[in-house]
């Protein structure tokens, strides 16, 4: 029994994808480390300032381990990261894992709220525009989503802020959150950035869903369903969508990854204490360990979500799930 599960082609394929994902993550860690090494400037100099004596700089460099060869530093960084130790921030001496944990939680909360609204909404709008292809609902949905994708997100952010916060006073314009806030208060605080994020990712997902399903709608089995007298929505839902899962999941995952990784601008606009702001702050201070840690976390999220998309695509294929 166990042998037959292990030998199943799907298990092999999934294992292969996961292995590739881990390899990719390893490669990403190399790139991140190499990238921060070739950045101009000197950390010791930026900590101590222009007036530091050469002796003090040398001491600090030795203390930070900056004199070790790059390979040694990379390995000790990677081993630390694997143990959950991302090092300490150079600028304020805080433990990075601790400081980032709370920020990451905030970002995931924001991205999660946006995803819960955006994904079902995008799929529904995609299905509706397929059902009424070429008619007014399709055209309205296309026009609105295209417009919302086309506007730069910081502009979108200020427009939303102007209308909802300044004019209507419906929601706060600054999304500050504290530990002591209740869930409802938190949701109220992030309403505007969530709106912006939904508008930003909605168009892409909706259009891809529409395109993927329309592609399937050309198939002979859709004609079969029509000739069986099935209702149009049932045809789309039961016959077309199951065959469009792979491309839809891929684009959904790409957008989820964007929600986590790409929120930097929106977080800054709304002064939301998430990963994005944390990263921007520390890039400005040349705090290399923090930048490396953020890069690694972003890469892991990105690769992880795409890996899930790959695995779901494999599992959605009946030919792979049920071999002859």
């Amino acid at each position: 029994m166990i042998k037959s599960i292990i030998g199943h082609p799907v298990v092999l394929l999934v294992a292969h994808r996961i292995a590739m994902g881990l390899l990719l993550l390893f490669a990403a860690s190399l790139l991140i480390f190499a990238g921060t090494q070739i950045l101009p400037g000197d950390v010791a100099q930026s900590i101590l300032g222009q007036s530091a004596t050469p002796q003090a700089l040398a001491n600090l460099r030795a203390e930070l381990g900056l004199n070790e060869p790059a390979v040694t530093r990379y390995i000790s960084w990677l081993v630390g990261a694997l143990h959950g130790d991302l090092g300490t921030a150079l600028t304020n001496g805080q433990d990075i894992a601790d400081a980032m944990g709370r920020r990451l939680g905030n970002t995931l909360f924001l991205a999660g709220c946006a995803a819960i609204i955006a994904v079902p909404l995008a799929l529904t709008l995609g299905l509706v525009s397929v059902r009424y292809q070429g008619r007014w609902p399709d055209k309205v949905i296309s026009a609105v989503t295209l417009a919302s994708v086309s506007v730069p997100e910081f502009l979108l952010g200020y427009i939303v802020m102007f209308i909802m916060a300044v004019r209507l006073h419906a929601f706060p314009s600054v999304s500050t959150v504290y530990d002591s806030m209740s869930l409802l208060e938190r949701l109220n605080a992030i309403a505007l950035p969530v709106t912006v994020l939904v508008l930003v990712v909605l168009g892409h997902m909706m259009r891809m869903t529409r395109a993927a399903i329309l592609n399937v709608m050309q198939s002979a089995y859709i004609e079969t369903a029509e000739l069986k007298g099935m209702r149009p929505f049932r045809i789309i839902w039961r016959h077309a969508l199951p065959n469009a899962i792979a491309p839809v999941v891929n684009v959904v995952m790409l957008n989820l990854a964007y929600l986590v990784v790409g929120v930097v601008v929106v977080e800054v606009v709304f002064v939301y204490p998430g990963m994005g702001q944390y990263l921007v702050d520390h890039v400005a201070k040349r705090d290399v360990p923090v930048v490396q840690a953020c890069g690694l976390v972003f890469a892991a999220v990105y690769i992880g979500l795409n890996m899930i998309a790959d695995v779901v695509s494999i599992l959605a294929n009946p030919r792979l799930r049920h071999p002859k």
């Binding site: 002979a220 089995y221 004609e223 079969t224 000739l227 199951p242 959605a316």
Partner: peptide, 16 residues
């Protein structure tokens, strides 16, 4: 009225 097509292989939904 029902219909039987030339290519049953293409006329069945592969996912069901």
């Amino acid at each position: 009225v029902t219909y039987v097509s030339q290519s049953a292989a293409a006329s069945f939904n592969p996912a069901r």
